[in-house]
Design a protein around this nucleic acid. Structure first.
Lengths: 214, 214
DNA sequence: CAGTATACCATACATATGTATGGGCACCAG
DNA sequence: CTGGTGCCCATACATATGTATGGTATACTG
């Protein structure tokens, strides 16, 4: 498991990361890489050269490859696979998930199979989290599995959600009541967790899928 | 589930099929669709117009889409997803899985996450099956889940495999012994199945992943 | 201070690429 | 025979796009 230079996303500036994400996204959504001008207009740049600079940086750092002269010649140097959603790392204490940009990699996920429109992906509201622990075992969500999450701050009874409890992200069933909210594990060895109805940032997202690799 | 016109590959001429395949291939290999001229030179055409004709036909028949004016604007009209593996239907009696081409759709699956090289994909040896029943419940494989299978006819002890029993495909743990082979369910409500060691076509593939959609 | 990286703008130019037009030839159904 | 489809060539043109050049400004580092 090498953390080579080109693997270390921390070596990227915030802007560079944004642009890289956009390219990844466009690749999966449109099937073709964006042009320099498309990138520029997306971020409000009035100059193509601005994008050139950033692409050049990403090139130099090994995140992108280009075929000289080729239209839409940008490709990701890593995974040729395709469309991917970010795999977020562990949730630092107290920080809601939106703040996290600690990408650990990416997963491929069939949005159409999940009945999602391309739009829901466009807004980059889908991400993956690696499950730790056995608390959802009986729901078929095992330790090490990836849950596919759509970022949203509401959910219905009985849905599996990502909840933020004391700064920690956990996967649980949601049970809303008038007086309190209860988070139910799917494993008799674990106890339900009660939360005040007015808890802030409780619901971070809804689990829309599970992926496991043997 | 209609077999619409654009689903029927038989409505394509041999040449059109070749060109469609080339586009699909280029998409997965290069990450970008080919240009008309690239297609032309690949097939030895000296005229761009020749490709235009064929693309126009594929367009008309609904296999391709284009964004007018866009460089490398060809995209597949079906699965926008990306790389996909076929989802096979139920296994008809007695017929080994290789014979089945009853595509029910396709799934996106992150090969790199599963530690697979692009080559294993190229050989189209990966497919998906929809799980019926609860026999593997305790292994986190639930009814309705998709198992990702690599086609192979051998497997090791403890691995989850696709076994062909009396013409039916089932998901089970494999337990090889000197005298017989035992297929273990992951659910106390089900019983192990014993199979002679010389059973033919028993192991159809190895389960390398699971995917679930809520 | 010089040097380097980041971040942006403006402009120009060569060419990569989609697209239109106009043929030509073979085959087959009406 | 006429029309449609498949299959191929040649050429022209507008524009989509990569790429080079040259600025400005900030911040950090040695």
């Amino acid at each position: 498991m090498g953390t080579s230079d080109s693997d270390n996303l921390n070596s990227l500036s915030k802007t560079q990361r944004k642009i890289l994400s956009f390219i990844e996204e466009a690749l999966s959504l449109e099937g073709t890489p964006p042009t320099y001008r498309e990138i520029a207009s997306h971020f409000g740049y009035s100059a193509v050269g601005t994008v050139q600079d950033h692409v050049r940086a990403l090139l130099k750092k090994g995140f992108l490859r280009t075929t000289p002269g080729r239209a839409r010649g940008l490709t990701l140097s890593h995974r040729m696979e395709s469309l991917d959603i970010p795999v977020l790392g562990a949730v630092p204490a107290g920080r809601p998930i939106e703040a996290i940009e600690d990408r650990r990699g990416s997963l491929s996920f069939s949005l159409s199979s999940a009945g999602l429109s391309p739009k829901s992906q466009a807004s980059a509201e889908i991400y993956a989290l690696r499950v730790k622990g056995e608390s959802m075992r009986d729901a078929g969500i095992l330790d090490g599995d990836f849950v596919i999450v759509r970022k949203q701050h509401h959910a219905e009874n009985g849905q599996i959600i990502i909840a933020l409890i004391e700064g920690e992200a956990t996967v649980k069933f949601l049970e809303k009541r008038s007086d309190r909210i209860r988070l139910l594990p799917a494993n008799p060895a674990f106890s339900p967790i009660d939360v005040p109805v007015d808890a802030e940032n409780l619901v971070q997202g809804k689990v829309i899928g599970v992926q496991r690799f043997y």
